[in-house]
Design a protein around this nucleic acid. Structure first.
Lengths: 292, 292
DNA sequence: AAGCTAGGGTCAGAAAAAATGAGGCTGAAT
DNA sequence: ATTCAGCCTCATTTTTTCTGACCCTAGCTT
């Protein structure tokens, strides 16, 4: 005979997630990217939340959004809550699929560094399933569903230093006497490492202005193939062109090598449990010495 | 020119919420009640989550569900995460509507204890909006969106002891010589406090079996009105019938009063910030002495 | 043994929520 | 003045979620 409980419904979780992302990133557009939706969806979610609360959370300007005092005071709790949620999801995933390891990395690293090492890894630990996701920028490991990330950076476990120097096919190399000959050939560039040529030139040709001319690639692995095919000179990252150099497809025509401050580094989302699949994969990757 | 990121989509939050509730309560049916949906909806959510994970989270039996080892290891993280989320929502609500206080209580307490005191509260703090939600059982304050809860219980701040004794209209009282006369009149009962008569009878008529006969109400306030109208004898809760007794509508025909172990108590969801609307309302309620 | 009950499962259809896509507005930077 | 990045709106579409009705099983009751 008890009456139906007309309870005040709670706030929708998805709207809270949109608020948290938008507030943390201080941008609806950035939040939309993070959440994988369109900006309009974020607008709608936040608007719905504000309507439910009866208070504004953002101040909108033509240049973007800024948190109101109310929103700013509420934000830290949500950041913590969603961090905790993501952590719980990681634990759940690990429990559900204890032999699967998810790795996030740059496309170039995935193809040129990680991929050649996978056969050995499979041989060493055939029961581990390695899942690799390529992306342009390192994910927020507190949130994204990856166990390991492999990116150039300044902190984390160093897997290989970043040493760069021009590489090209042996045939093309025969026609290059010195760095000044670069002006006469195509200099392949990669969009991800747009600064490479300038950095190297500053070392190899001090005082001279050098503007590389040649095709720009968005996939470094493709640029490597093109260079091996004789299309031009590419700024090689040692860790990524080592395979091609070892089999003679690429050679270094000049002696100048530049070591970048950041190297290829490994991060883990959470402390590695000894014996876990993640820990074993990390140990394998860390143990990959660099073939001289 | 960057390729569209085909990212692995995260687990749906609503499914995680269903899992958390079902796992914590160890019952899909109970989770459905807590979430305000039908059991079928919970089934579907959990099933979807299990499918996404590729692992079973519950063992189903005809008598209910039990967590699997995987589910059990994942649960604590989700409980913590949803607690944090609810806390963040509370903060957000408080920031958005700092002058609103949400109180959860029994219907009977709402009508017979709280309601008569609201005019004084409004007079003392007219800027505070008090929202009262009646429910059958005390909510989980860590989760439910209430600032204060007012229920019979053993812990929390005592607002009034629970003293019970029979009450009836003055006219009916004149025909009652002693407790044994109760067998000849209607004994009104309330579903929420089904044990009241037995408890009181054990004290007032030791050794005798006493089974109250009379209508059963699911709304105590209605039973009080009926009793005042002469419909029978009701087991009165002092804090709730005081108003009617003060104006003579109800009288206590017998001298035996029984004090229950638990009293009317006030809980708050989180520490009271001095000067906050919640703190002021709590102080007002706590300061309500009991008219002798 | 038959009936009852509590707790889950399933399914089709309905309802609600969320997302899209196209167009518009604003103000800072060029 | 023009461009451009960001946000807003709105109608429409897509996806998710929920319901409602019914079935199934195991433990109790009668």
């Amino acid at each position: 005979m008890a009456v139906a409980p007309p309870r005040p419904k709670d706030l929708p979780l998805s709207a809270l997630r949109a608020f948290e992302a938008a507030a943390r990133l201080e941008s609806f557009a950035a939040a939309a990217v993070e959440l994988g939706v369109t900006p309009g969806a974020v607008t709608a979610q936040v608007k719905g939340l504000e309507a439910a609360l009866g208070a504004a959370l953002f101040e909108r300007t033509a240049r973007g959004v800024r948190l109101t005092a109310v929103g700013a005071r509420a934000l830290p709790g949500f950041v913590a809550a969603f961090d905790a949620m993501a952590g719980a999801v990681q634990v759940l995933r690990a429990e559900a699929a204890p032999q699967t390891v998810h790795i996030a990395t740059l496309p170039a690293i995935a193809q040129l560094w990680l991929s050649p090492r996978l056969p050995d890894l499979r041989a060493a630990a055939p029961e581990i399933v390695v899942s690799i996701t390529a992306m342009e920028a390192a994910p927020n490991l507190k949130r994204a569903p990856y166990d390991l990330s492999l990116f150039p950076g300044a902190s984390g476990m160093l897997l290989a230093p970043e040493v760069i120097f021009p590489v090209c096919s042996p045939g093309l190399a025969a026609r290059l006497r010195g760095p000044e000959d670069l002006a006469a050939v195509a200099c392949l560039q990669d969009a991800t490492w747009a600064e490479d040529w300038a950095v190297w030139a500053a070392e190899a040709m001090p005082g001279q202005r050098f503007t590389p001319r040649g095709p720009v690639f968005s996939l470094y692995a493709l640029a490597v193939e093109e260079a091996a095919g004789g299309a031009g000179v590419l700024m090689g990252h040692e860790a990524l062109v080592a395979g091609h150099m070892a089999r003679g497809a690429l050679v270094a025509p000049f002696g100048t090598r530049v070591t970048l401050a950041q190297g290829l580094r490994l991060w883990s989302a959470r402390p590695l449990r000894p014996g876990s699949a993640v820990q074993r994969v990390a140990a394998f990757l860390a143990g990959q010495g660099w073939p001289a």
